[in-house]
Amino acid sequence: MKMFEFPAFLVLSLIDKGYKESIEDVVELCEDKKIFTYLGEKYNNENISNFARKEETENYLQEFVRTFTTGDFQRKFHIENNGLVLIVSALVDS
């Protein structure tokens, strides 16, 4: 299993339920390393709040959002509307 496969599945489960977050909010939460705590609390999902490689995943996502601009997300990943999809794309791109 790739290092970030499990957290990608957790976020995919939120997308499957129809949940959506703005790209701007996701970028800010990734920058602050609070994305999984936020998602777990908002969607009442303890699995997404606490998983084995949470710290490494949040470190990776912080570095990811520092590397790209919002326009880059659209050009490279073709993501315009859902920050949750951006998270999955970042984890798949790892």
Rank of each mutant, 00 (worst) to 15 (best):
I15S: 07
F6A: 07
V11D: 01
I15F: 11
V88G: 05
S94N: 11
E55D: 11
N47Y: 12
S22W: 08
Y60N: 01
C30P: 02
V27L: 06
K20G: 09
F9E: 04
K34R: 10
H78R: 15
K33T: 11
G18W: 10
S94Q: 08
E5N: 10
I35Y: 01
E56D: 05
F4W: 09
N45P: 09
E5W: 08
E46L: 04
N81W: 13
A8R: 03
K34D: 07
R53Q: 13
N45M: 11
L14W: 07
T67C: 07
F9Q: 02
L12H: 09
D72I: 03
E21A: 02
K42M: 05
H78G: 07
D72A: 05
F4Y: 14
A52S: 12
E5S: 11
R75K: 15
F77I: 07
K20V: 13
F36Y: 13
K76T: 08
F64I: 04
Y38S: 05
V85G: 06
L10I: 00
I35C: 01
S49Q: 02
P7L: 11
K20A: 08
I79G: 00
I15P: 05
E56S: 05
F4M: 09
T69P: 06
V88Y: 07
D32T: 14
V92D: 11
K33Q: 15
V65K: 00
M3N: 10
V27R: 06
F64N: 00
F51W: 15
G71Q: 09
P7V: 13
V26Q: 03
E55G: 05
I48K: 00
S94H: 06
H78I: 12
N44A: 03
N59T: 04
C30M: 09
F77H: 04
L84T: 01
K54Q: 12
T70M: 10
F51D: 08
F36N: 00
V11H: 01
R75T: 14
K2H: 09
I48V: 03
I48S: 01
I79H: 01
N50Q: 07
E56M: 04
A90F: 05
K20C: 14
T70I: 14
D93F: 14
E58V: 02
V11C: 02
